[in-house]
Simulated scan of single mutants.
Amino acid sequence: MALHMIKLCVGCDTVEELVDWRQTYRPGEPWILRTRQTPKRAAEMIDGGSVFRVFKGVILCRQKVLDVATVGEGAAARCEVTLDEEVVRVLPTPRRAFQGWRYLEPRDAPQDLRGEAFGDVPPELARQLREVGAW
Rank of each mutant, 00 (worst) to 15 (best):
P123Q: 13
E44N: 07
I46S: 00
T35E: 14
P110C: 07
T14R: 15
K40S: 06
Q63G: 01
M45N: 06
T93F: 09
R53K: 10
A76I: 02
E86N: 12
K40I: 06
I46E: 15
P92H: 07
T93C: 13
D47R: 14
A134H: 09
Q128A: 11
E16P: 11
A69F: 02
T14W: 05
D108P: 08
E80D: 13
E86H: 06
L125N: 08
R127S: 06
D13R: 15
R78Q: 13
Q63K: 11
P92D: 03
G100N: 06
D67C: 01
T35Y: 03
G48W: 02
A77S: 15
G48T: 04
I6H: 00
R95N: 05
R34W: 03
K40R: 12
V88Q: 10
V65C: 06
P122G: 08
P92F: 01
R95V: 10
R96E: 15
T93L: 08
P123Y: 09
W101L: 07
R78W: 09
V65I: 15
E29I: 06
P27K: 03
R62W: 00
P106R: 01
E29G: 02
L3R: 11
K64W: 02
V15P: 00
P92R: 04
R130F: 13
A43M: 04
P94F: 15
R127Y: 03
I59W: 13
P92K: 05
L3I: 09
V10E: 09
R89N: 08
R53S: 04
K56A: 13
F52I: 06
E73D: 12
D84F: 03
L8C: 09
L83Q: 06
R130C: 14
Q128N: 06
L18W: 10
G119N: 08
G74S: 03
R62N: 04
V54L: 08
R96H: 10
F98E: 00
R78I: 05
A75K: 08
P122L: 13
L66K: 15
Q99I: 07
V90D: 11
V10P: 01
V65T: 05
R36H: 14
R114T: 12
E29N: 06
A77G: 03
